[in-house]
Design a binder for these strands. Structure first.
Length: 420
RNA sequence: UUUUUAGACUCGACGU
């Protein structure tokens, strides 16, 4: 059992959890008894791959083998649920855990708290903070960092800063992660001057900044449409403080694409490869998307080819970008075919996939067909969002079906969505 | 005198 556990752990760490699971099923069960460590490794593998349903199944399987879950196992599962934005479900698992007599610790509370923060449920997060203290679990550096991140992403940068000061008073010293979090928050909140000031302050502090810091600055500048400033920061800062990584290049490539400078983005792709930095599926997808938006489908196909040759596997976003490209060129039939193909390859269409195709159909006047796709989305358990309704309402209006459009608007409001 | 199986925090891409 111990040997197999080690093997599973190595496989999982290398992202080969599927293989690990096969060994568990085919060899391990036949020769020895799996224990809680076995399940910890497997759960972690599935959670990391965001296959949380499978993780939940394994968790039940483990209980069926009369193994008693402990705080580690619960924590892995709860963290997996939180990271897939199912913090309410995570909280349910947590309450069950408490009922069964397992004592919670700081790590598990922090997972939950950061999960609620991720879903912008700051009140719940703050309630958990109080609860954990009452429960005898002291918030630590990670807990505070998670809360600062949640507050920032909910546009509450002032409260985040207060929390940072509070940390210092409580002698829980902020680290680089804390400052990086705060810096990113200021950029996202559009507080450019504050962000730049904090960055300068960071450069003068004892703590050495890292590539994440630079990536935050460069992406902040790109998001604000300051691509030139981003490029000059890149040239100025990189090499001196640290080496750019795949994210650094990708941020810039995306920035260039979004400023309609796709050719320059392609040049940057070449230089990143020269610098020995391997582009990943995200990098290539940005370029495919940029090229499709300029209707350069042939070039997009070249980039896609290169991506496949380099061993990257197209993911949901890659497909969505391609589908958007096809729809833009009114090649909606091909797009529909591609959507079926992606399902066959195990890439499950999401609400954005449907939105892309529904819009494509509306724009070629096939609102009826678009409605059918909406039906399909709902059938498959998806929930139409505001954008989907906007697309259809717009499509109906363009067909002068204003009454239908008003009816749909009413239906949308019934589901609790606010029109924008 | 010290380490050998498990968990939490920050950066990038897609639809109106």
């Amino acid at each position: 059992t111990f040997c197999y556990n080690c093997l599973l752990e190595v496989l999982v760490k290398a992202g080969r959890h599927r293989q690990g699971y096969r060994i568990y099923c085919e060899e391990m069960l036949a020769t020895c008894e799996p224990d809680v460590y076995t399940y910890a490794a497997l759960l972690r593998g599935f959670c990391r791959a965001r296959e949380v349903d499978e993780a939940c199944r394994l968790f039940d399987e483990m209980k069926a083998r009369n193994l008693v879950p402990n705080v580690y196992l619960c924590s892995i599962l709860i963290d997996g649920l939180c990271k897939t934005k199912k913090s309410n479900e995570a909280l349910r698992v947590f309450r069950d855990m408490q009922k069964s007599g397992i004592l919670a610790d700081t790590v598990i509370y922090t997972s939950l708290l950061s999960g609620f923060g991720r879903e912008k449920k700051l009140n719940e997060a703050l309630e958990l903070l109080e609860e954990m203290i009452e429960d005898g679990c002291q918030p630590n550096l990670v807990t505070y960092n998670s809360l600062i991140d949640g507050l920032c992403k909910d546009n509450q940068t002032d409260r985040a800063r207060e929390l940072l000061e509070k940390m210092k008073r409580e002698k829980c010293m902020p680290t680089l992660v804390t400052y990086n979090t705060m810096l990113d928050g200021l950029f996202r909140a559009g507080k450019m001057d504050d962000a730049i000031a904090l960055f300068e302050e960071m450069l003068s502090m004892e703590i050495a900044v890292d590539v994440v810091t630079f990536n935050i600055v460069i992406s902040g500048l790109c998001r604000a449409g300051k691509i030139e400033a981003a490029l000059s920061s890149f040239h100025r800062l990189m090499g001196k403080h640290c080496q750019p990584n795949v994210i650094t290049y990708s941020v810039l490539i995306d920035g260039l694409c979004k400023s309609n400078r796709v050719n320059q983005a392609l040049k940057l792709l070449a230089s990143m490869k020269e610098a020995g930095c391997a582009p990943d599926v995200v990098t290539y997808t940005m370029l495919v998307d940029g090229l499709c938006k300029e209707s350069r489908v042939a070039k997009a196909a070249d980039v896609l080819r290169e991506m496949l040759d380099s061993g990257c596997v197209p993911n949901l976003v890659t497909y969505n970008s391609l589908l958007h490209g096809l729809c833009k060129m009114k090649r909606v039939t091909e797009a529909l075919n591609l959507m079926r193909q992606m399902s066959d390859k195990g890439v499950k269409p999401n609400v954005i996939t449907y939105g892309t195709l529904i819009d494509g159909l509306c724009k070629i006047g096939q609102v009826e067909e678009a409605y059918k796709l909406l039906g399909e989305l709902v059938e498959k358990g998806g929930t139409p969002d505001l954008v989907i309704y906007n697309i259809l309402i717009n499509g109906l209006c363009k067909q002068d079906k204003v009454d239908d459009s008003i009816r749909l608007l009413g239906k949308m409001i019934e589901t609790g969505l606010k029109p924008d």
